[in-house]
Design a binder for these strands. Structure first.
Lengths: 153, 153
DNA sequence: TAAGATTGATCCATCAATCTTA
DNA sequence: TAAGATTGATGGATCAATCTTA
């Protein structure tokens, strides 16, 4: 009984009121979905996803084992295993067995991966300009980084 | 957290450096996971999840159709269908068919749902105190609300 | 035809259990 | 036994397709 044709004016205010009482965790996940979805279509054109992109980001500095990559991306080993499976399948990275310790799998970014990373970063810069609605965007990012840093250690 | 003895000092700085170059969407989803995971154990004791909790939050104001609930929670109808299935199964809400329009399903919070909501809100307040690491927490929340509001309209 | 809700397929993440190699 | 990686089950979200009722 609330969502009908009477939202002639004040729609933004109504949404704001709905959301203002949400727990902070919910606000964060909602915001994450909105920001990331703007970008997903573009990434799909590169055969990439957000999870794969952050891997390539870290792999740009050189090959890493799956566990090292998981720690840098701050996900579990299990999640990383599946993400790497995908970026290997699409040809953005390669898995090779470490000859000195055959338990380890070394992941290396490919030429296709490097190109996709560059393209994604360029687009990212553009799409984040839309976040200008947040006043003091730089500080907002710093607050997020602080939150992740202190809560994660 | 990462139980090695070589990170005697500077662990926090290292994590911060890792994360500082991430896209904002990734920072948001990471922060969301960290904040929400603190709370999940408690909710599990109530047989609830975050998705269910936000439903109960909106249902506290009175019964709603599934579509209305989806719009308030800002998820798709399909997601809401599955979330309601769960909170109905656990007895936190009930589904009844609207006799005047049998396409509609009316969702009502139960006594168990009301109790669980109250318990969760009390705990929520406590757990969010840990977010005090963010300077000007109030403004941080306002920025999130702005982001969701303007991007979603 | 359209509206409301459900089911199927996919993706990101988790934990628990397993498999291989050290 | 432990370390590194994988697989299975589950939860939260999406889109596409379907089913029922108006």
């Amino acid at each position: 009984m609330r969502g009908d044709e009477r939202e002639v004016a004040g729609d933004t205010d109504r949404v704001r009121a709905d959301v203002a009482s949400w727990p902070t965790g919910r606000l964060l996940s909602m915001a994450a979905r909105m920001v990331e979805s703007r970008f997903e279509g573009f990434l799909a054109g590169l055969e990439l996803t957000h999870a794969g992109l952050i891997c390539l980001h870290h792999l740009a500095g050189g090959p890493l084992s799956q566990r090292e990559l998981a720690q840098l991306c701050r996900v579990t080993d299990q999640t990383m295993s599946r993400t790497i499976e995908r970026i290997a399948r699409t040809g953005h990275a390669e898995r090779t067995s470490d000859t000195r310790d055959r338990r380890r799998t070394v992941v290396t970014i490919t030429g296709k991966g490097i190109e996709a990373l560059a393209a994604a970063r360029a687009e990212e810069r553009l799409s984040e300009q839309a976040l200008g609605a947040v006043d003091d965007y730089h500080r907002f990012r710093q607050q997020l980084i602080t939150l992740i840093t202190v809560a994660g250690s």
